[in-house]
Amino acid sequence: MIAVIDYGAGNIFSVKNALAFLGFEGKLTGNAADIRTADHLILPGVGAFPDAMRMLAERGLIEAIRTEAAAGKPLLGICLGMQILFERGFEFGETQGLGLIDGFVDKLEPPPGENLKIPHMGWDSMEVVNPTPVSRTVTNGDMVYFVHSYKAVTPRENISLLACYGQEVPALVFRGNVYGAQFHPEKSGDVGLNILRSFAEL
């Protein structure tokens, strides 16, 4: 069973639908016991960094996620769920994240002179920086669907897939069994579904 962690943020139904379409059992749950018994964890999220951490804390899920991730259980954060995997976020002030991947999350700023719209919204291409089991079906130039105004800042060794939007935008990050997708694999057509399948097969 794949626990899709429901803590009051985001369109979690799309993640569950995509897993069902691929033939995997996803369970929407906000329960620490389910997080412990699940084979895989998916941490979705739409909204703001501090709210997401507060809602996880209120539901008593932070320790359960950290413990299971440390024990080697595959974890995939999506969008804001990816951002809170890092140590710190700077959306509405500084907030502690889950600290599962080194780095922090900061505002996406268009470089001076470049007229780029924020949020970074739509289909954008990625390049493979470090091949991982989850990125195994991805080739350079594959496009996925992004919607975000903040980005991860993390050492190169933690980046599997990289997008570029006037600056480097880590698209898939990882450390060991912990993965984070800045894009929405559940909304990225076949490219995204293949990434979800690779994760579910870990």
Binding site: S14, N17, A18, S188, G189
Partner: peptide
Amino acid sequence: TAEKVFIP
């Protein structure tokens, strides 16, 4: 639709 189509 959302059960079958995985684009926005």
